[in-house]
Design a protein around this nucleic acid. Structure first.
Length: 184
DNA sequence: GTCCAGGTTAAAA
DNA sequence: TTTTAACATGGA
């Protein structure tokens, strides 16, 4: 916390957050940014100064899977397009999710194609204000093995450890661990 | 050429 | 129930 005094959890828009992390699976961070920018450039509203908004599910559903592939999203394109179709026809999804407790909300998200435990936790943490979510990716796996001696632990067990050890602000702790591990 | 990247899924063991 | 392989694409 002393090393990263300005680190915060943002309250990012739900749809944009889900979309971004659907794009993120097994991809490098620099490439994730490129893909998201490309989709926004192609479909999003012109915000001026060369910036474009996230298009929203309706536009993505209408654009189709092929356009997503052209944005270099690869096999993720099918999942993202399916999710776009589901959520463009279900305007109440986010509201319903907000009424659910953390375990049920995570389960609900994981019913969407392409959404596993890690993406669900990222969406809950960054897009739903659920600070108890503890996303475990390759970086967290490494740092928890190195600093907490959890080498060889099953991913779900590492999630559980983080939530028990850090409690109601597990997601905030995760951000410091993540930032620290990537900086070194 | 090989390996891996802010994983998930479906099939095989 | 646990383990493996496929999935697209690009950079190291």
């Amino acid at each position: 916390m002393q090393e990263f005094p300005g680190l915060r959890i943002l309250q990012q828009p739900f749809g944009e957050t889900l979309f971004s992390f659907l794009c993120s699976t097994a991809k490098q961070i620099s490439q994730i940014k490129q893909c998201c920018l490309e989709v926004a450039n192609r479909l999003g509203e012109d915000l001026g100064c060369g910036n474009y908004a996230w298009p929203g599910w309706d536009a993505i559903a209408e654009a189709g899977e092929d356009l997503l592939r052209e944005c270099r999203l690869g096999y993720r394109s099918r999942y993202i397009w399916k999710v776009a179709k589901i959520l463009s026809k279900d305007q109440e999804f986010e509201l319903r999710l907000a009424s659910e407790g953390y375990p049920q909300a995570k389960a609900t998200l994981m019913q969407l194609p392409g959404v596993g435990a890690k993406v669900a936790d990222c969406v809950l943490l960054f897009g739903c204000g659920r600070l108890e979510a503890f996303p475990v990716d390759t970086w967290i796996t490494k740092v928890m093995a190195r600093r907490y001696n959890l080498g060889g632990w099953d991913t779900a067990k590492v999630v559980q450890f983080g939530q028990v050890h850090f409690g109601s602000a597990a997601g905030l702790a995760q951000q410091f661990l993540f930032a620290s591990e990537r900086a070194h």
